[in-house]
């Protein structure tokens, strides 16, 4: 028969120590770096080194592992460090940071107000994307606050996207006010009509 019963090697499961793993982050081989990053889940003290590694890491699979380990080790400090990547020119890093922050609601929540007030409209859009995904019952009110106060069309559009899913009848008047503010913009008109229909109080 062509089928053979294969035996896999036995592996010892003894964890490597912190300094060995941190040393392995400098390896030229992506598989070695990736393995070290995965094993660093055991060491909360490695968080800063992992954040620093993210900046220089070029291998997509190692980057994915870095984000996973950082989500595992999440803390307000990690969240603030990841939020710095929202202004990166590297789109993969930016979007990886957004996804990771969406998975650490308690760690990022205290920092969201700062991000929502950022001078860069793209950072505010990303902050709204993170906010809209959080599992928290204040989310509709915070999103409504964005459409009442933010002047940028794309930031408001991101908030409408969230409100279409989580908003209740109480946000309809804010949506109607926004329609007047962006009168003549076909997309905003469409987005607001769609959101109100989704909210179900036409």
């Amino acid at each position: 028969m062509a089928l053979v019963k294969g035996k896999l090697p036995e592996c010892d499961g003894a964890p490597r120590d912190l300094s060995t793993l941190l040393g392995a982050l400098a390896s030229p081989e992506s598989a070695v770096r990736r393995n070290a990053v995965r094993d660093l889940k055991l060491y909360p003290d490695s968080a800063e080194a992992l954040c620093a590694q993210l900046q220089d890491e070029t291998s997509p699979s190692v980057r994915a592992a870095l984000f996973s380990t950082l989500i595992h080790l999440q803390s307000p400090h990690v969240a603030v460090r990841l939020a710095e990547f929202l202004r990166s020119d590297d789109v993969q890093l930016r979007n990886g940071a957004i996804e990771a922050l969406q998975e650490m609601p308690d760690a990022i929540a205290p920092h969201l107000q700062v991000l929502l007030g950022d001078a860069d409209s793209d950072v505010r859009i990303f902050a709204v994307n993170i906010l809209a995904s959080l599992r928290h019952d204040q989310v509709p009110e915070w999103l409504a606050e964005v459409i009442r106060t933010d002047a940028h069309v794309n930031v408001c559009a991101a908030a409408i996207d969230g409100l279409a899913e989580v908003g209740g009848p109480e946000v309809v008047k804010d949506l109607e006010a926004l329609r007047l503010r962006f009168a003549g913009d076909a997309f905003m008109d469409f987005a607001i009509t769609t959101a109100i229909r989704r909210i179900g109080s036409e």
């Binding site: 020119d89 789109v91 860069d120 409209s121 793209d122 859009i125 069309v153 794309n154 559009a157 913009d185 076909a186 997309f187 905003m188």
Partner: peptide, 26 residues
């Protein structure tokens, strides 16, 4: 979104044939 001026260059380098910014008129 249009905040980054080199986005269009990056898009063409990646293989885009055309570049638009949000919001797009119908």
């Amino acid at each position: 979104t249009e905040a980054r001026p080199d986005d269009a260059i990056k898009a063409f380098e990646a293989g885009a044939n055309f570049y638009l910014t949000k919001p797009v008129a119908p």
